[in-house]
Amino acid sequence: MDVTILLVEDSPTDAAILSAALDDVGCQWPIQIAQTGDDALALLGQIDCRSHVHPQLILLDLNLPGKTGHEVLREIKRNEVWQAIPTIVLSSSATPNDIYKSYQLHANAYITKPTNFSDYQLMAQKIYDFWLKTAQLPART
């Protein structure tokens, strides 16, 4: 699995907007999109435990068909191979309960989705600058 960013997003429009915003800010890292929680877990399940090749970052929506984002987050953070992958919840929900539960399940950050493209670009720039250029992420081989 040669993916740097795993975007778990059921809305093709939101996925396209975020991908375009990341591209606009200079992010050339490959993005794999999973439209359901089950698809995301299946993609992560392809990780070879011996090679430790994995996404560098997971961007996770909460409102997904099938398994919810919280259920996916729980499985990611319980899995010995996946738990070190920084996982950012990216949701339209700003409810305190969703935010609290996400951090309780060990999300690395919680970001409420912007409502316009310029705000998406600003958010994408911040994600790119911090998570992909500044932070030390788990080594890939």
Rank of each mutant, 00 (worst) to 15 (best):
E71V: 07
L43D: 04
T68N: 04
N63F: 14
T68S: 13
V89K: 11
I58H: 00
G66E: 08
L57W: 10
V53A: 11
W82K: 04
N79I: 02
Q83F: 14
E71T: 12
L57V: 09
D61N: 13
I88T: 06
R78V: 04
L41F: 00
I88C: 05
N63A: 15
L41T: 01
Q46H: 12
L73E: 04
K77G: 13
G45A: 08
N79T: 12
D48P: 03
E80W: 05
G69Y: 00
N63H: 15
N63Y: 14
Q46P: 05
I88K: 00
I85P: 10
L44N: 10
I76L: 10
G45C: 07
A84I: 12
Q56K: 13
R78I: 08
V72L: 04
N63K: 15
I85F: 08
L43P: 02
P65W: 01
Q46Y: 05
E75W: 01
P86I: 09
H54W: 05
L59S: 02
H70T: 11
K77P: 14
L62R: 00
T68K: 06
Q46E: 12
Q83G: 06
D61F: 10
P86C: 10
S51F: 09
H70D: 04
Q56Y: 01
L57K: 10
N63G: 15
N63Q: 15
L62K: 00
Q83P: 09
A42E: 11
H70L: 15
E71H: 07
L64H: 02
D61L: 11
L41W: 00
N63C: 15
W82R: 03
L43R: 06
V89L: 14
R78G: 13
S51E: 15
V89F: 14
L62F: 02
S51K: 15
P65T: 03
G45H: 07
L62C: 06
I47D: 04
